[in-house]
Nucleic acid binder design. Structure first.
Lengths: 195, 195
DNA sequence: TTCTAATATGAATAATGATTCATTTTTTAA
DNA sequence: TTAAAAAATGAATCATTATTCATATTAGAA
């Protein structure tokens, strides 16, 4: 699919991002996406098999961007504890600069587990594993306590950031600025796990 | 509504819990809920205004239970740091013993923000505030650092627990047992915020 | 330029499932 | 015991929308 006419494929993805973010997957009409993209309803079915397929593709595209960006930013730091700080900051910045992505992650990440039992969200696991690897590295360098389980810690840290962004997405006026929130969260996470 | 015949009201709520948990709100048919409850489709509309109303009522009922249970359990501890440990343990236990509730919280808590912009989820905020109050108390007693912001910390802590339960709900075989997970999470949270 | 294949269109289809309501059953109280 | 009210039933309605497809447009090759 994605080769024929990449421009139009992108246009549909972008339109769908907006519409899904505003209405949620189930309340978004395919015709709205078409309208937002400035094309006919039927055209969508040349690029995507069905509505679900739009969501999955969109999610993977977005996650890939996020992933690439995060990897790049993290690679600039060498100290694992600094990497964790950076992760928090970059994640929350991303959410702030791109609420659509945040909403999609928030709602659709949960949806997908329900309406597509078989769709395994590889990209998301990769994202989680970025954190897992940092923690592993920290343990190896003796910076992080031996008893910390990366499988739990990575989820806890992601969950903390994710809940914070859920809050932002919902409230009109963010109560805390990115730097404060990110400093607090990575702050007590790091204090909590360091040797 | 909820006075006429509380038994049947409960029966519908219970049926809906099962069906929503299995299929998710949008894929759950009202007729399935009726069937599960052993009543006619139309009967549901005697007790609830519409499908959304079932979800909202159900959510509030469940949250009330969770809230009462948690308050009770926490009150048994006097040390704020112990209360935090207890919170994690009770939360995760609840999830394990009652996956239906977990799934509803996971998916519908997010949904609701989308499909009912006006529905403000008071019960959920109350739950979050339990954590907030504990942290406040800990600060007052000089057990928790002065610079910790309860508004951020409570969300981070809840988020950590919630992401952990998401993982459980999704995976067939839980990889970590409740005690380990809860000890880890409350462990590094407490280490992270204590003075 | 002209023909063909690839794309795009959007009106029509067709399935779905929430909600209603005329009818039946059950409960209440006189 | 009986009549009125309340509760329950489930078949019929009715709106909603994803998807299809016959037709039209565009692009590319010859």
């Amino acid at each position: 699919m994605r080769h024929k006419n990449y421009e139009k494929y992108r246009k549909i993805i972008d339109a769908a991002t907006k519409v899904f973010a505003k209405k949620g997957f189930y309340n978004a009409k395919v015709s709205e996406i078409a309208q937002e993209a400035g094309i006919a309803d039927g055209t969508i079915y040349i690029y995507f098999k069905h509505k679900d397929d739009i969501l999955i593709s969109l999610f993977e595209e977005k996650m890939q961007e996020v992933l690439d960006n995060m990897k790049q930013q993290i690679s600039l730091e060498s100290d694992p504890l600094k990497k964790i700080e950076k992760f928090a900051l970059v994640h929350l910045k991303l959410i702030q600069d791109n609420k659509d992505i945040a909403e999609i992650i928030q709602v659709e990440l949960r949806q997908s587990s329900k309406f597509m039992k078989n769709y395994h969200n590889i990209k998301f696991f990769e994202y989680l594993d970025l954190i897992g690897h940092i923690i592993q590295e920290g343990k190896e360098k003796g910076l992080i306590r031996e008893d910390i389980l990366p499988g739990i810690a990575k989820r806890a840290f992601f969950g903390a950031l994710d809940e914070m962004s859920r809050f932002w997405v919902l409230s009109k006026k963010p109560k805390y600025d990115i730097e404060t929130a990110s400093r607090q969260i990575s702050g007590f996470f790091i204090n909590g796990i360091k040797r």
